[in-house]
């Protein structure tokens, strides 16, 4: 599907209460235009639940469901299995969760659903922290980032650990489809969503989702930061179709310093910390190229 072929009809409507500049509603709008009306949506506790799923102003024009925080994989299992019992093979179940709900508290349910190869499209919108509760670090928060639980203190400045690579863990589950995607590459983004839609079984998409509020960045920076994340090598664009991997873009290795300086969450970082992160990017790419490359055709 081409950008210009996307239907005009909105299944995630205006009037939601996302912060200015948030990437998540852009992700949702476009994903829903591809998935269409025959989609059942599950959200765990996350920003998207609050800004799109508040009674009586629910922004979804499709069946919408929430139970709790740590169970997207399990609830989506219940939904997809029930649909099958009701002979409703024509519907897609979309579980859409943040990075905390996916990488951390929801990981068990995610892994269980993937191991059972449930017929679910799981979309992790990765804004690199618990934004809904007010910017706390998650397993997907990058090294050095300020959050309210990794403050820029006098002794310790920001997060001390590196970002957890959830997509690669999902690849190890040998599910039909795993991909990372990014709004700065819309054609690639739409292609991956459409590809995932047309498959059966467990499909996992990790989408880079800038949060100007939590990242302390300008509200018009989401797409720019998305592009820079790929160009610096911080974010690798790849996909695995039934275990066959393709790296979609080779980074230009532009200095991460340019990316970091646009975001207040990194403002406190020392030169040493930036060097550590720059070195991590290099190693990450070497590892991605070796590991993911070994699985390419």
């Amino acid at each position: 599907m081409n950008m210009k072929d996307l239907p005009d009809k909105e299944l995630f409507t205006s009037g939601h209460t996302a912060c200015p500049g948030c990437a998540a509603p852009i992700v949702v709008r476009n994903v829903m235009k591809i998935l269409g009306e025959k989609t059942l949506v599950y959200n765990p506790a996350c920003c998207l639940l609050v800004f799109g799923g508040t009674y009586p102003w629910v922004a979804w024009e499709v069946p919408y469901h929430h139970v709790a925080f740590e169970n997207t994989g399990a609830c989506a299992t219940g939904m997809t299995r029930a649909l099958k019992r009701m002979d409703r093979d024509d519907c897609t179940v979309l579980g859409m969760a943040g990075d905390g709900g996916t990488a951390d508290i929801g990981f068990q349910a995610l892994s269980g659903a993937a191991e059972r190869n449930e017929d679910i499209l799981y979309l992790m919108y990765d804004n690199e922290a618990y934004m809904n509760t007010g910017i706390q670090r998650s397993g997907a928060t990058p090294f050095g980032a300020w959050t309210t639980t990794t403050p820029a203190g006098k002794v310790i400045g920001g997060k001390e650990q590196f970002k957890k690579d959830v997509a690669q863990i999902m690849l190890a589950h040998a599910v039909p489809y795993v991909a990372t995607a990014n709004l700065a590459y819309p054609a690639d983004f739409l292609r991956k969503v459409e590809k995932a839609k047309n498959m059966k079984g467990f499909r996992f998409l990790q989408v880079y989702s800038p949060c100007p509020t939590g990242w302390r960045a300008d509200t018009d920076s989401a797409i720019k930061l998305s592009k820079m994340a790929v160009e610096t090598g911080l974010w690798t664009q790849w996909e695995a179709d039934h275990g066959v991997v393709k790296i979609n873009a080779k980074p230009k290795f532009t200095p991460i310093r340019d990316y970091l300086k646009l975001q207040g969450r990194f403002a406190h970082m020392t030169d040493e910390q930036i060097d550590v992160l720059q070195e991590w990017v290099k190693k990450k790419w070497e590892r991605d190229e070796k590991w993911l490359g070994a699985l390419s055709e």
Binding site: L40, Y42, H65, V67, A68, E70, N71, G73, A74, C75, A76, T77, G78, M79, R81, A82, L83, M86, Q108, A109, S111, G112, E115
Partner: peptide, 17 residues
Amino acid sequence: MESEHSAMSAMVSAAAT
């Protein structure tokens, strides 16, 4: 399921469906 928490979660969502 992979836990009781997930079992009850799936129950709720299947019943809601």
